[in-house]
């Protein structure tokens, strides 16, 4: 793990969820990045990527929202994204720019700068590959005894146009098992959580979420680990099962694994209290 003065600089796009409702995700993630030797510079004045709503009602809006963020990214510095949904929007806009010269013209007219074809959009997961390979003895037992199911959600699935983009499935299992935790094979690792339908159609989303959580209960998992802040929220607010499982952001468990613990201010933001589990496993005193 690199650390210190030779830190690698990255621009960072947090997105609306991590900046507000999932602040615990953002804080743990920034801590982990710092520990891994990255210097994170938040993209100045970033705007919403358009989420699911912009492309649902007008593709131009979705394109411009994403493009403004791409235009704000300083050259020569990769753009780090943590939210899988934002990642997909930004990648799709970048692909559109690569394929359509007319889109490039529009971009240049709107933002007064040429398209940077070399802008590297990185998902948080990409920083972790390799970082845990040389795991020391402390790291190997950091999460010992934790039985978890990895939940990627649907946004890390790639639509046909992005079929050559990186596939991150399997990474949570690889890294957390290197830290001593036990990944379980289960039924719903990339099932959609229902996203925005949670607001307009809770009756449709509740059975979807219950199915996911029941899937985790069926394999006797202690907890669900999520890659996406939106999924995290839906799993917490829409489960109507009697028995609920604690949900963790992947970055929170990484913080424990790296010896930085889990902060009280993150835990108090969990709707399903994870403290009894953390205490029982000895990750917290």
């Amino acid at each position: 793990m690199a650390m210190g003065a030779d830190a690698i600089e990255l621009s960072y796009f947090p997105g609306c969820s991590l900046a507000t409702s999932a602040r615990e995700n953002n804080r743990s993630l920034l801590k982990v990045c710092k520990k891994l030797g990255y210097r994170i510079v938040e993209l100045e004045d970033w705007n919403c990527c358009g989420s699911s709503s912009a492309h649902s009602i007008q593709s131009d809006l979705a394109f411009h929202f994403a493009c403004r963020n791409l235009a704000l990214a300083p050259a020569g510095r990769p753009l780090l994204v943590a939210c899988p949904s934002c990642m997909l929007r930004l990648q799709q806009a970048q692909l559109h720019l690569k394929e359509d010269p007319q889109a490039c013209e529009t971009y240049e007219r709107m933002w007064g700068r040429p398209v940077d074809p070399n802008l590297d959009i990185l998902h948080f997961f990409e920083l972790l590959e390799g970082a845990f390979r040389a795991a020391g003895p402390e790291l190997k037992t950091a999460l010992k005894g934790l039985r978890f199911v990895p939940y990627y959600g649907c946004m890390l699935i790639r639509p046909p146009a992005l079929r050559h983009a990186k596939d991150y499935h399997g990474l949570m299992e690889k890294i957390l098992s290197a830290c001593g935790a036990q990944p379980l094979v289960w039924s719903h690792p990339s099932r959609c959580c229902g996203t925005f339908l949670s607001v307009a159609k809770p009756a449709v989303v509740t059975p979807m979420v219950n199915q996911i959580i029941q899937g985790a209960i069926d394999v006797e998992a202690d907890c669900i680990v999520t890659a996406c802040a939106m999924c995290y929220l839906n799993l917490e607010i829409r489960c109507s099962l009697k028995h609920q499982l604690p949900i963790f952001h992947f970055s929170e468990l990484l913080s424990i694994a790296l010896g930085m613990g889990i902060k009280k201010s993150w835990l108090t933001r969990h709707l399903v209290d994870p403290v009894p589990l953390l205490k029982a496993k000895g990750f917290m005193h």
Binding site: C16, A19, T20, S21, D45, N47, C48, G50, S51, S52, S53, A54, S56, I57, Q58, L61, F65, F196, L197, V199, A200, K201
Partner: peptide, 26 residues
């Protein structure tokens, strides 16, 4: 499904107002 379209419009309106989404107001 007028509710779903209404939701999308509120999200887009929120971005119009603030440049970002404000969940509570939406």
């Amino acid at each position: 499904e007028p509710g779903i379209l209404a939701f999308h419009r509120e999200v887009v309106n929120s971005i119009h107002r603030y440049g970002r989404t404000h969940k509570l107001e939406i």
